[in-house]
Computed example of a mutant assay.
Amino acid sequence: MVRLHVVVVCSVVGFLGLVLVILGVASEAATAQALVPDELDIDGFNVNCVYRTTPALGCGIVAALLALTAQIAVTTTSLLCGCCRTWELPTTTRHIVGIVLSVVSWIIVIIVVALFLAGAAMNTDQKRQLTADKKCPVDPGSALFAAATVFSLVATGLQIASYVLLLATPKGSTKPLATQQQTEVAMGQPVQLEPRQDADEVVAGGDPLPPSAPPLSRATEPTSKV
Score class of each variant (00 low, 15 high):
V2G: 11
H5N: 12
V6E: 11
V6F: 12
V7N: 05
V9E: 08
V9C: 09
V12H: 06
G17F: 05
V19L: 14
L20E: 08
V21P: 02
I22D: 02
L23V: 00
G24D: 03
V25G: 04
A26R: 10
S27C: 05
A29V: 08
A29T: 07
L35H: 00
V36M: 04
N48G: 00
V50Y: 03
Y51D: 00
Y51K: 01
R52M: 04
C59G: 11
C59S: 07
C59P: 02
G60K: 01
G60Y: 00
G60W: 00
A63E: 01
A64I: 02
L66W: 03
L66A: 08
Q71G: 10
Q71R: 10
S78N: 08
S78E: 05
C83A: 14
C84E: 06
C84G: 10
R85H: 14
W87T: 10
T92L: 04
T92G: 14
T93P: 06
T93Y: 11
R94D: 05
R94H: 07
I99S: 10
L101W: 06
L101Y: 09
V104G: 02
V104K: 00
S105D: 03
W106D: 03
V109I: 10
V109G: 01
V109A: 08
V112L: 03
V112N: 01
L115T: 02
A121K: 08
N123R: 00
D125L: 06
D125C: 01
D125A: 09
Q126H: 02
Q126K: 00
K127L: 07
Q129S: 15
Q129V: 09
A132S: 12
K134R: 14
K134V: 11
K135D: 03
C136S: 02
P137L: 08
V138F: 05
D139N: 15
L144I: 01
L144E: 05
A146T: 09
A146C: 03
A148Q: 00
A148Y: 00
T149M: 02
F151V: 04
S152P: 01
A155S: 14
T156N: 04
L158V: 04
I160T: 05
Y163D: 03
L165E: 01
L165N: 02
L167V: 09
A168G: 08
P170M: 12
G172S: 10
S173T: 13
S173A: 15
T179M: 11
T179K: 15
T179L: 11
Q182R: 13
Q182L: 13
T183D: 13
V185M: 13
M187L: 15
M187P: 00
M187Q: 15
G188M: 05
Q189D: 12
V191H: 12
E194S: 10
P195L: 06
Q197V: 11
V203E: 13
V203T: 10
A204P: 01
G205R: 06
D207I: 09
S212F: 08
P214D: 12
L216N: 07
R218K: 09
A219Q: 12
T220Y: 11
E221H: 08
E221F: 10
P222N: 02
S224A: 08
S224V: 10
S224W: 11
S224N: 06
V226S: 11
